[in-house]
């Protein structure tokens, strides 16, 4: 309950918005953002999949260390890492406790530790790539790798519209609060407070839906007028859009370095055991 209260106090939408947008677009100077998005995405793909098929603790730990370093380089916002930790504890912690309950012992901690490592490698990889890179570059990279144009557009539009949506949401929530009545002090105050806020959150979507509907209409009309659907069918436009993507020595060094490091890990993990 104490935690819930602290959350509520710190849960300022404004803070959240500033942090998030700062993280997403403030990463222009991060080292990783200079890499070609395609190489980053391929790199990501490896770390998103390979861990599931690896059982060596050494390899997993090594991967974890690499990704921890890359996460630092990508300058991810602290609160994102906080969410990650919460998620991991929630997912694995309970499994451990329950397996103890069903007759497991500390032995069962080892596989679960591996599971934790696997999960965190996958998550850190996605944090590195998706918060260390400008969404525009990600969306170009995805387009270059063959994702549909609607998807890559939606990605960059999502980032564009987020501050607007949050702004709108804040004012709707404010309207509810200015005219509402918060639960007074008394028994179960925090439970009632949580229920109050949750209810507001749900109710807010009624005005928000109407406002967003109006907004979508203008947006889609404007997209049409400015040739968006024409461009989607037009290969020249796609080529132009992606012309700026260029693989450089940096990408080679990055991918090569990672491959070398992983090879070393495998050697350590599987050879040394013998």
């Amino acid at each position: 309950m104490q935690i819930a209260r602290r959350w509520l106090e710190r849960l300022s939408l404004e803070n959240f918005q500033t942090q998030l947008m700062g993280m997403v677009y403030g990463s222009g100077h991060a080292v990783l953002s200079r890499l070609d998005p395609r190489s980053m995405l391929i790199w990501y793909l490896f770390f998103a999949i390979a861990p599931w098929f690896i059982s060596s603790l050494t390899v997993l730990t090594g991967m974890f260390l690499l990704l921890a370093a890359s996460t630092v380089l990508s300058r991810a916002a602290p609160f994102i890492l906080f969410i990650l930790c919460l998620g991991l504890i929630g997912q694995v912690g309970w499994l451990f406790l329950l397996s103890l309950f069903f007759g497991g012992d500390a032995e069962s901690a080892l596989p679960l530790l591996k599971l934790t490592l696997k999960l965190s490698v996958v998550s850190l990889a996605s944090i590195t790539v998706f918060s260390g890179m400008d969404p525009e570059r990600i969306s170009d990279g995805l387009l270059a790798l063959g994702m549909p144009a609607t998807f890559s557009f939606s990605l960059s539009y999502g980032y564009r519209i987020l501050p607007v949506l949050l702004e709108e949401f804040r004012s709707v929530l404010l309207s509810y609060r200015l005219r509402g009545k918060a639960p007074a002090a008394g028994r179960f105050r925090y439970v009632r407070l949580a229920v109050y806020y949750l209810k507001l959150l749900v109710l807010s979507f009624y005005p928000l839906m109407l406002a967003t509907a109006k907004r979508s209409r203008t947006t889609v009309e404007a997209l049409e007028v400015r040739g968006f659907s024409y461009g989607m069918k037009n290969p020249t436009s796609r080529r132009l859009k992606l012309a700026h993507l260029q693989l450089s020595w940096r990408d080679g060094a990055f991918l090569g370095g990672t491959a070398g490091y992983i090879a070393l890990l495998f050697w350590l993990g599987y050879m040394q055991v013998q």
Binding site: L98, F102, D105, S108, P111
Partner: peptide, 22 residues
């Protein structure tokens, strides 16, 4: 996912039950 992620899934006592329960 848990079955793929944890090798020797069967070897960990209680894991299968707890996964299903959770």
């Amino acid at each position: 996912k848990v079955i793929i992620g944890v090798e020797q899934f069967e070897a960990v006592p209680g894991l299968a039950e707890s996964v299903v329960l959770v």
